[in-house]
Simulated scan of single mutants.
Amino acid sequence: MLKTSKSITLSGQSMVGTNQVSNFSANINSDNGSSNITSSVMNQELYDANKTEVRKDLADFTSAVYEVEDQMNAEATTDTKE
């Protein structure tokens, strides 16, 4: 039996100038709203020199993921009321 699921993928990059320092990815399962956020440092030297900014970017990315989760939850709640 085939079981399928739908998910939303978000990606982001923390940049210093034109250089990518870190990569962020999130996968949100639309069936149950669970999410998985990962981050990778692409340039350790730039990361070490810009930790505050990169960590802020990760916090902003995480907030964006939460917004999508909340939207999905609101839509699911609306769908079940109809």
Rank of each mutant, 00 (worst) to 15 (best):
T18M: 15
F61L: 04
G17N: 00
S14W: 04
G12L: 02
I37Y: 00
T78K: 13
T52R: 07
T38K: 09
N32I: 10
V54L: 02
G33H: 01
V16G: 01
T18H: 13
F61P: 00
L2I: 15
V65M: 00
S30Q: 09
V54Y: 00
N32C: 09
Q20H: 13
K81G: 15
S14Y: 01
K56C: 12
T77C: 12
T80P: 02
T9M: 14
T4V: 15
T62V: 07
A59M: 05
D57S: 05
V65K: 01
I37S: 05
N19E: 12
M1A: 13
T80W: 13
S40M: 07
V68N: 04
M1N: 06
T62S: 06
V65S: 01
D31A: 15
S35G: 07
N29T: 08
A59F: 06
K3Q: 14
D70Q: 11
V68E: 05
N29F: 10
E75W: 15
Q13M: 10
V41H: 01
A76H: 07
S7M: 05
A49D: 04
G12K: 02
Q71C: 11
S39G: 13
K56Q: 14
S7H: 08
E53V: 14
S7W: 08
T80L: 12
N23V: 07
D79F: 11
T38W: 01
F61C: 00
E53T: 14
T80K: 09
S40F: 07
T77A: 13
K51M: 03
N29Q: 10
G33I: 03
Y66W: 08
M72H: 15
E75C: 14
F24I: 02
N50E: 04
V21L: 01
S11G: 13
N43F: 05
T4Y: 08
T18Y: 10
N29W: 03
E69R: 03
L58F: 13
S5F: 13
E69P: 02
G17C: 00
S14V: 03
G17L: 00
T78W: 09
E82M: 10
N29A: 14
S30T: 09
S22W: 01
A26H: 00
S40T: 14
T9N: 11
M42W: 07
D70K: 10
S63L: 13
L2P: 08
F61K: 01
N73L: 06
T52Y: 05
L10V: 02
E82K: 12
N73T: 10
E53Y: 11
E75L: 12
N23R: 10
